[in-house]
Simulated scan of single mutants.
Amino acid sequence: MAKGGSSSGSFSVLGADVTITGNISATTELHIDGTVEGDIDCASLVQGDGSQITGEVTAETARLAGRVDGSIHARELVILRSATINGDVHYEALTVEQGAAVQGRFAPRDAAPPKASAPSNTASSSTTGSATSSSTTADLGISPFSSDNDSDTDRASASASNTSNYY
């Protein structure tokens, strides 16, 4: 388990022949080519294509190319085409290459923790924990496809209430 100092150029590498059972915490970049069975919390994670992580990943930046079985929390996340993710993905900035396999939900991370009294903020931000697909489309002034007679009324009221958001 690597704990880096304040040196900005340091990083830790787990080779392809290394298996770690337990949680890993690092303050600098962590490069994993081996197997980790436990949670990872680091500043920056680079995962090689042959590696496997079974546990939750928390990082400021992550570049994943191997297999992850667990949820991922990253400010900037890149999922390469060789990656296989089985778990929910929470991000602020996301890049997914064509061919990557993800079994889970994508959800933008909130800049601040969600508050219990946040329903009034739902219209101003579509990334709150309480936002759903239908409220997100209403916030954007887009009416979901519907065969009922109320769709014209919903579309008119949604665009009338959100006209100022487009200018």
Rank of each mutant, 00 (worst) to 15 (best):
P108G: 08
T127Q: 09
Q103Y: 07
Q98V: 01
A123F: 13
V96M: 09
T127C: 06
R109I: 14
S126H: 11
R105T: 14
Q98M: 04
A107L: 09
S124G: 09
Q98G: 02
K115A: 13
V102P: 01
A116C: 02
A111M: 12
A123L: 12
V102D: 00
R105L: 12
R109W: 08
R105E: 15
A116K: 10
Q103W: 04
A101L: 09
A100T: 01
P108A: 12
G104I: 05
A111I: 14
P119L: 09
P114F: 06
S120C: 02
V96S: 04
A111T: 15
Q103S: 10
Q103F: 07
S124W: 04
T122F: 07
S120V: 08
S117Y: 03
K115F: 02
N121Q: 15
P119V: 12
P114H: 06
A107M: 11
P113G: 04
T127A: 10
R105N: 11
F106D: 01
A101D: 06
S125V: 02
S117E: 13
S117P: 00
S125T: 05
A112S: 11
P119G: 06
P113M: 07
A123D: 14
R105F: 04
T122C: 12
A111V: 14
R109Q: 15
A123T: 14
P119Y: 06
G99F: 00
S125H: 08
E97F: 00
K115Q: 13
V102H: 01
F106K: 02
A123C: 07
G99W: 00
